[in-house]
């Protein structure tokens, strides 16, 4: 299994030079097409150079395009960006349509895409405008004036009768029952029984 991504650089979304705040500027600075004139692997990129490259350069006047033939080497596209980043990609055995698509992708990005993993998909310089939530948000401001320690606010949250309280209740009920019985019978050993039970 490929664990290559473990060694990948990661980062947070940033745009160079405040890009997009004013006028948008294409961030691709120069692009170099390296290819072989003979080999079949360079066929797609040769087709691109023959048919599409002039239009590409005309439509993107801000991009410098270099074409570099070299004998018996694999075809390569190298893109360099305004922020100093560059992307090298091999295009051996790519069809002409593929090369068109990859050239378009290299034009629309501003960093080396595959070498960076975004950790977030959101970046802001102003994390909170109404203030972050605190336990006192939307609470009664009278809480500020309370003298602490306070019995009412300092008490533990009471959810139900505890075991001790239930026992006390039971005991009281029993006492009442005993009292009723004793009252009716007027037993002499009342006090001793009561003392034993308590």
């Amino acid at each position: 299994m490929s664990n290559k991504y473990l060694f990948l650089n990661s980062g947070f979304p940033r745009a160079p030079f405040g890009l997009g705040i004013g006028r948008y500027v294409c961030q691709l600075q120069r692009i170099t097409l390296k290819f072989c004139k003979n080999r079949g692997g360079s066929r797609g990129i040769r087709g691109f150079i023959e048919h599409d490259l002039v239009n590409y350069a005309r439509e993107n006047p801000g991009v410098v395009v270099y074409v570099k033939p070299r004998r018996h080497r694999q075809p390569v596209i190298v893109a360099e960006y305004l922020n100093g980043d560059n992307q090298w990609m091999e295009v051996a055995n790519y069809s002409r349509e593929d090369v068109v698509k990859w050239m378009e992708l290299l034009r629309t990005q501003f960093h080396n895409g595959p070498s960076l993993r975004w950790r977030k998909l959101w970046h802001t310089e102003f994390p909170s405008i109404q203030g972050p939530w605190t336990p006192f948000t939307f609470r009664n401001p009278m809480l500020n004036l309370v003298q602490l320690p306070n019995k009412e606010f300092g008490a533990a949250v009471k959810l139900g009768p505890t075991a001790t309280e239930q026992l006390v209740e039971l005991f009281k009920a029993q006492q009442l029952a005993d009292k009723a019985v004793n009252d009716s019978c007027q037993n002499v050993e009342e006090t001793s029984v009561h003392v034993q039970r308590t």
Partner: peptide, 15 residues
């Protein structure tokens, strides 16, 4: 809003 970049993510592995 302005679109400032269109790119592909890093290569993700599905194993």
């Amino acid at each position: 809003a302005t679109v400032i970049e269109k790119t592909l993510s890093h290569t993700k592995t599905r194993f």
